[in-house]
């Protein structure tokens, strides 16, 4: 698991400058979102929305109640779900109507395709929603307690869900390679 930042588990007494949070978490939030959606353009849009929302809500952020990481990832999770609600249904509908397969080519993400592990994230994106979420949140550096809090389940349930997801991912990767 990646090293966690000072903001991850420690509940900071005062709000750090928002820019500190931004610089600390922007890439992690992007990676989390990117594992959920099919294009880097969508991931950038959602990431932008996440930080716009967070920026406007920062005055109401209460650091004594939650960590900045949990707070930001909750915003990211809600924004991603909103994206699926607002766009996913229509996109699925469009594909159904036009009998088109899911687009394989993402011109905006050509540079990103060079990244060695892109294929693995594609398999993550194909997992059922909760499994995908558990994997993405955990590997974005959140503790199981934080993952459980975000997914409205206990820490133990989050661990179980994560391990089930991991096994499902392994099977999916093996099937894909067969």
């Amino acid at each position: 698991m990646r090293d966690t930042s000072a903001y991850d588990s420690a509940v900071v007494a005062d709000r750090p400058p928002f820019e500190d949070l931004y610089r600390e978490f922007m890439r992690r939030i992007y990676a989390y979102v990117r594992a959920q959606v099919t294009s880097s353009a969508d991931a950038e849009d959602i990431t932008a929305q996440v930080f716009m929302n967070a920026y406007h809500a920062y005055g109401r952020f209460e650091p004594r109640n939650t960590t900045p990481a949990a707070w930001l990832f909750r915003i990211a999770r809600n924004a991603t779900l909103d994206h699926f609600r607002a766009h996913g249904r229509r996109e699925r509908l469009r594909r159904t109507i036009e009998h088109q397969p899911v687009a394989e080519v993402d011109p905006a993400g050509v540079a990103e395709e060079r990244i060695q592990y892109r294929a693995l994230l594609t398999y993550v994106a194909k997992l059922p929603e909760r499994q995908r979420d558990a994997i993405s949140l955990r590997h974005s550096g959140l503790s199981f307690e934080e993952v459980g809090g975000l997914m409205s389940c206990s820490e133990d349930a989050a661990k179980m869900l994560y391990h089930r997801a991991l096994k499902a991912l392994r099977e999916s990767v093996q099937e894909g390679m067969a």
């Binding site: 698991m1 990646r2 890439r27 992690r28 992007y30 990676a31 989390y32 990117r34 594992a35 880097s40 991931a43 950038e44 990431t47 905006a108 540079a111 990103e112 990244i115 060695q116 592990y117 892109r118 693995l120 994230l121 993550v124 994997i135 993405s136 590997h139 974005s140 991912l169």
Partner: peptide, 13 residues
Amino acid sequence: QLDDAFETTRPRA
């Protein structure tokens, strides 16, 4: 591999 995948996933420059 997942750690590496998330760690290396970055938006465009």
